[in-house]
Design a protein around this nucleic acid. Structure first.
Lengths: 138, 138
DNA sequence: AGAAATTTGTCCGTATGTATC
DNA sequence: AGATACATACGGACAAATTTC
């Protein structure tokens, strides 16, 4: 097969299909996707194309890939948990030296930290923290 | 050259060099970068590697690429030099009392921390950190 | 207007390095 | 240490958009 990518490129249709499986729960959050090798077999595409599809999902924060391990589906953000308890919080913290360097601000300057805890069947799966500069300071 | 990517991969050092040229004004905002072909000649790297380096700059909103035209440097607001800190990183850290309580693990137990830095026009917008328990421990 | 050249986009196959299990 | 799985890199081929002649 040369390169017949009329309409939509192949890596995109593959990404769409994988996204569907994740969002439908066919690939449960927290579980590994099939290996790249398995995906090349299933979609009859080269490994490079499979990796491009997965890269698209990564940029959507739908999956996380770890070197020798595999690619893992991430718990969805706007999914209301069964217990309904929103494990979210927002607070202000002073920047430590690490964050200060990244943001190019002074150590001790105030940052906004938003925290989100995702659970599955009661156990904590992930803790996500997003830091940013207060709007007032910009 | 086979594939000796000790320390830093090739595409990243190339991306760093191109970023330096853009931020130093050597490649003026609004002007086209050298063609992929020219870059392969200069850096003695394959086209795929060059494209990966450019893709990195794209995700930093430092350049935009148009199909039959080329890759164009973006007008940017000055800002501190990128200190070479990777936009994505993963590391293992011991749980502090806060995280230990959330995960219901011992203080000092190892957690995986993944960090992602999102930028817009060169400036840091958000720092996202995701913590989770190593799979080996589950 | 049209053809050719240029340039980026997609895809394949292979080989080797590196991290994890 | 061995097997498995992802990461990097090369080279070639063809497609599609743009520019040039």
């Amino acid at each position: 097969m040369p390169t017949p990518h009329y309409g939509q490129p192949r890596y995109r249709t593959i990404a769409d299909e994988l996204r569907r499986r994740i969002e439908s729960g066919e690939i449960a959050p927290g579980t590994l996707l099939p290996t790249e090798r398995a995906l090349t077999a299933e979609f009859q595409a080269s490994r490079g194309t499979i990796r491009k599809a997965i890269a698209a999902l990564q940029s959507e924060d739908l999956v996380v890939t770890e070197h020798g391990r595999g690619t893992c589906a991430i718990q969805q953000r706007h999914e209301s948990v069964a217990d309904g308890k929103a494990d979210r919080g927002k607070r202000q913290i002073p920047a430590d030296s690490d964050l200060a360097a990244i943001f190019a601000i002074d150590v001790g300057a105030i940052l906004i930290e938003e925290q989100r805890i995702t659970r599955a069947r009661g156990t904590v799966q992930e803790v996500t923290r997003v830091y940013r500069i207060p709007l007032a300071a910009q």
